[in-house]
Design a protein around this nucleic acid. Structure first.
Length: 313
DNA sequence: TTCCGACAGTGGGGTCGCAAT
DNA sequence: ATTGCGACCCCACTATCGGAA
């Protein structure tokens, strides 16, 4: 026992920046990312696959693991299968940062994750670990990222961990993002410490988004303009509802849109299958919105939509 | 002086549970 | 029984302000 501790201490003390800290910290707020149009270049960056799931923190203590959400709520019960698997790490104490996901057709599927959790289904859940913040008496937050990831990988390999708990590999080579058909990547400074709540440039998110043109079928009035637009999509002769967009326009654009929409107001909605929207004012679907979005939900609504402008007629 | 990071506030698609209708 | 609301999860974005550059 004493020997094991010694060996462990030596290997961790050798990591520059590891801080001896007897008692494991409580909840640690997650480091965040900033959104960028292009990934950074240079060998000071590593690139990880962007996972679409629930950001989580696993606290492993001996044969028990607890799972915390982004805001620090205890969701261990909802992820009980993963918590059990994490106990196989056989560490005294560890805090691991990662994402809970469900993979469908080789990509992370947020809708499936939500559906599974709602149904209490856990057999498809995966935990992708990408950071190690604390291990057996050492606070690693000031250790460079690459060292933290090495320690995490070693930990997983030693324990022989496999699905549903996985180590999130990264690429150090530039251009990786371009080659691979990912939905997005997170680029991280290889030498940076872990900074809770930080949204500055040491973690950068680059996402591949989809852009489309959708007729505006109505809007929700707001002070000085609109608060959201209702969107449709032409499918043959039909005009199908695809959700609303409420961001992307400045106050000025919002006011301008309001003027244009008031001019084409119509008492009856033009959607083929009417939707019940008490706050809506309907318009002739003659204005086309340019909208960026990331995904389409199961029922055909745009996910994370943002307004980019009106399409010139 | 200008620029940028942090924060607050608005909006989206979901889930849940509770309370008012 | 239905609806609305707020709290969670995932977000995109605008506007503001104070401090850094």
């Amino acid at each position: 026992m004493a020997r094991r501790t010694q060996v462990k201490d030596r290997s961790l003390a050798a990591i520059d920046g590891a801080v001896r800290l007897e008692t494991m910290p409580g909840f640690i707020a997650p480091q965040l990312d900033s959104l960028k149009p292009k990934p950074p270049t240079g060998d000071r960056w590593i690139h990880e696959i962007k996972l679409d799931g629930y950001r989580s923190r696993a606290h492993v203590v001996g044969s028990k693991a607890r799972i915390f959400t982004r805001k620090g709520l205890d969701w261990t019960k909802r992820f009980a299968a993963i918590a059990d698997a994490l106990a196989a790490l056989r560490v005294d104490q560890a805090i691991i940062d990662g994402d809970f996901v469900v993979v469908v057709d080789e990509r992370t599927d947020f809708g499936a994750l939500q559906a599974d959790l709602a149904a209490g289904r856990q057999d498809r859940l995966l935990f992708y670990a990408f950071d190690l913040l604390y291990l057996d008496g050492y606070d690693l937050r000031r250790v460079p990222l690459l060292e933290r990831k090495r320690a995490l990988k070693r930990l997983f390999e030693n324990a022989g961990l496999a699905a549903p708990v996985l180590y999130s590999e990264h690429l150090e080579a530039d251009g990786a993002a371009k080659r691979l058909n990912w939905e997005g990547i997170i680029s991280k400074r290889a030498d940076a410490p872990y900074r809770s709540g930080d949204r500055s440039d040491s973690w950068q998110k680059v996402k591949t988004s989809v852009r489309g043109e959708f007729p505006i079928v109505g809007f929700i009035p707001g002070v000085g303009g609109i608060s959201a637009l209702y969107l449709g999509k032409r499918e043959g002769k039909d005009l199908r509802y695809v959700g609303k967009v409420g961001t992307g326009f400045s106050r000025v654009v919002s006011a301008d849109l309001r003027k244009r929409l008031d001019a084409i107001a119509t008492p009856k909605q033009k959607l083929t299958k009417p939707v019940r929207k008490p706050k809506a004012r309907w318009v002739e679907p003659s204005l086309i919105a340019d909208v960026e979005y990331r995904d389409v939900t199961d029922d055909g609504s745009l996910r994370h939509p943002s307004f980019k402008g009106l399409v010139k007629a």
